[in-house]
């Protein structure tokens, strides 16, 4: 079976000469959640918009489930649902009518039972006859999702699904995404909240300056690039780091009260037990110890800075 989405050598250059995307290759497997990470203006939304047909591209090919988006437009487009970043709705329409409209637009026969199911899933059924303008911001966002799901797509794009959304709604959104995945939906989301990608994604792509810098399995990325840190709070301050501890390249902080040891999380020998052993030999006592693992955010910042 072909990949649900396959992109080759995609490029977008605006008339002004600005290159929004350059040489993007990407293949998405069925059923995965893929997070596209990048700072503002990196090209995330442009990439999604080109796949969905709302922005023209200047180079490359795209196919959805093996259907070229130019030559088999209908077959490709029908499989895609898009939830854009901005809420854009006909404020005078009712919830039910606007969702029905979307289903029809994508060429599907009416299916009241299915529409009821998605509206119930999104806690919108009670509001089905309300006009959009009467709804809260969170509800409007859910209407956008209901519209995108109305034609039973196989591939769902969520462009910054939780930008400007409160904590509870963000948790709800994550739960919804997981539920959709359980049903076999493939989801591509863009975000600049690393927490979101870390929480949900199977794979992560980092985009900056219109180029896809890396595509990796999230856990592998965390293992590969993640650093761990051991922080020791000492009982008595040290003036300098003793020469006997030089091989660990420690950092002394907070007036000599804190020793920080950074090490590679995936190394066979972390050097941590040996360090603690040597310290007790030297008689350096500590009150507390703490270890931390770098987040996707640290990795991301690191990558973007390196590329810059």
């Amino acid at each position: 079976m072909p990949a649900i989405l396959s992109i080759e050598a995609l490029g977008k250059q605006y008339k002004s000469g600005h290159k929004a995307l350059e040489g993007v290759d990407l293949s998405i497997e069925r059923g995965e959640i893929f997070a596209l990470l990048g700072p503002n203006g990196a090209g995330k939304t442009t990439l999604i918009s080109i796949i969905c047909g709302t922005v023209t591209r200047t180079a490359g090919t795209i196919s959805v489930a093996g259907h070229d988006i130019d030559h088999a437009r209908r077959e490709a487009r029908q499989r895609i649902g898009l939830v854009p970043q901005e809420i854009a709705l006909d404020m005078f329409s009712t919830v039910l009518n606007t969702v029905r409209f979307s289903r029809g637009l994508f060429g599907k026969a009416p299916d009241p039972a299915y529409i009821e199911e998605i509206l119930r899933d999104l806690s919108l059924w009670d509001k089905r006859n309300a006009r959009i303008m009467e709804l809260s911001g969170g509800m409007k966002r859910r209407v956008m999702i209901a519209k995108a799901l109305s034609h039973e797509p196989e591939l769902l794009f969520l462009d910054e699904p939780t930008a400007g959304v409160d904590v509870n709604l963000r948790r709800d959104m994550w739960a919804l995404v997981r539920k959709l995945r359980e049903r076999g939906m493939t989801i591509i989301l863009t975000t600049h909240y690393i927490e979101e990608a870390e929480e949900m994604a199977d794979r992560v792509g980092v985009i900056n300056g219109g180029r896809l810098l890396l595509v990796e399995d999230k856990d592998a990325l965390m293992r590969k690039m993640g650093k761990r840190q051991l922080t020791l709070t000492l009982q008595a301050p040290l003036a300098t780091i003793p020469d006997e501890l030089a091989e660990w390249s420690l950092v002394l902080a907070e007036d000599g009260l804190r020793l920080i040891y950074s090490f590679d999380a995936q190394a066979e020998d972390t050097g941590m037990p040996a360090l603690l052993h040597r310290m007790s030999e030297l008689g350096i006592a500590y009150r507390d110890l703490d270890t931390s693992r770098s987040t996707l955010e640290d990795i991301f910042v690191n990558l973007v800075e390196k590329a810059a």
Partner: peptide
């Protein structure tokens, strides 16, 4: 004007 054009453009509609 309302921005709902994205839906028309992304639909399988010629």
């Amino acid at each position: 004007f309302t921005g709902t054009m994205f839906e028309i453009l992304s639909a399988p509609l010629n």
